[in-house]
Design a protein around this nucleic acid. Structure first.
Lengths: 224, 224
DNA sequence: TTCGAACCGTAACATTTGTTACGGTTTATC
DNA sequence: GATAAACCGTAACAAATGTTACGGTTCGAA
């Protein structure tokens, strides 16, 4: 198996190829080849193996009980799939994984992953970091979603962005459509609230550029 | 240090006391004693150590930029604190941790935790399981929150509950107030929708007992 | 058993948000 | 530079949800 592409993914960061070869030599790893349209994992199927996409790309689709499917995410090689659902009591694939094009993947049984992580502390740290980052993003998004009003979401978002960008004038890093999606609201609703916040003197907005006029007022808007 | 209480928490499940002693002997662990009102960790402080509550209890409070605080969660001994924010790039305490009563805690630096996890595969598995379960709960809740209408949330919730309880007649496991909170909606709104769903023949409800009259219709209601 | 607190069901009304539609602007591509 | 596609700003209207209020019910503690 060609391990070179693996070095590019965060899970194997800081490992050299020799080390990686040593690890893989000890593991029961299967390399599989798949064709466009193949199903790599069924939704709700027990997630008892780590699938690492080596070449090609896949899509994750979630099917509801009525049979309708919604696309959740596309993943391109090289990248592991569903790394966070490998462990835990309810370890099932949250989505159905379907190949978008021909490709190859390495499949590692769960026990082998455990073994692999015990063998190398750097690898273990990478795995834990990835899990933690994922949990942090999830947690942040959840906090955002549990805010009641659009103004609250915008206030939190803007203050955070201002802190990250180190300036009172922030530049949105996504389109407003994408931002509305992230917030789980309709685009015109977001626009309307931005307009209202300008009217109320909280911000000045010009397309993707927004100036925070009163952080104090924004902090208040965040909570009530 | 008395390690016996540690055996009760999931992180150390399936370990015997001798093994636990062997592990702790090798680690740089500090046992601290704290008094009611002491702050064990500041919000946003770098989360570079694992705090395991041995005796006593603490509360996690989140302060916003306006200075207001909201209680997030109470934790009682014996239990680890913020186990999921120990790793990752943005590893900061999400809350301020304050002691509710006098108690003791074991503090383990991050590198020692890493070492500890490398030393024992059972412990590693426990840690990964806990992380994964947390991520799964977070992910489920997020999916729930991103549903648009109250009817959708109820449909998903009821079908899930029905599957878990293995019956078409389910018994709510929380009060309706708590359920409304979980959904992030107002209690009367939940009641109103339950009434509407009865009117539409989807369910029959009597206090905490709800009968699913048409799973097919519920599955449809879930998506549109 | 009684009392109070928490919970439940419901209704009228206020507010927020979504929907749809339209025209202008930017951006990418040829 | 022309063209299409995506993005942006706004408005009128519809729909969903929140708010407040009130009375009945259940449950646990005194």
């Amino acid at each position: 198996m060609n391990l070179a592409p693996l070095l590019k993914i965060p899970l194997f960061r800081s490992l050299d190829e020799a080390e990686l070869e040593r690890i893989f030599a000890e593991l029961k790893t299967i390399e599989t080849r798949f064709k466009k349209g193949d199903i790599l994992a069924m939704q709700e199927e027990s997630c008892n193996r780590l699938i690492i996409l080596l070449t090609g790309s896949v899509t994750g689709e979630m099917a509801d009980e009525a049979g309708r499917v919604t696309k959740v995410e596309d993943v391109e090689a090289p990248s592991p799939i569903a790394i966070l659902f490998l462990f835990g009591a309810a370890n099932r694939f949250p989505v159905q994984v379907t190949a978008l094009e021909d490709g190859t993947a390495a499949v590692i049984p769960r026990v082998s992953v455990l073994r692999m992580l015990s063998m190398n502390e750097v690898l273990l740290k990478n795995y834990l970091d990835i899990s933690a980052d994922f949990a942090t993003r999830l947690s942040n998004k959840l906090n955002m979603m549990s805010l009641n009003t659009i103004r609250q979401k915008l206030a939190v978002w803007l203050l955070g962005l201002s802190k990250r960008q180190g300036s009172d004038t922030v530049v949105l890093d996504k389109t407003k459509s994408a931002l509305a999606d992230y917030f789980g609201i309709a685009r015109p609703s977001l626009e309307r609230e931005l307009t209202a916040m300008q009217r109320d003197g909280l911000i000045a907005a010009n397309r993707k550029t927004i100036t925070l006029l009163s952080k104090k007022a924004l902090a208040e808007a965040m909570t009530k």
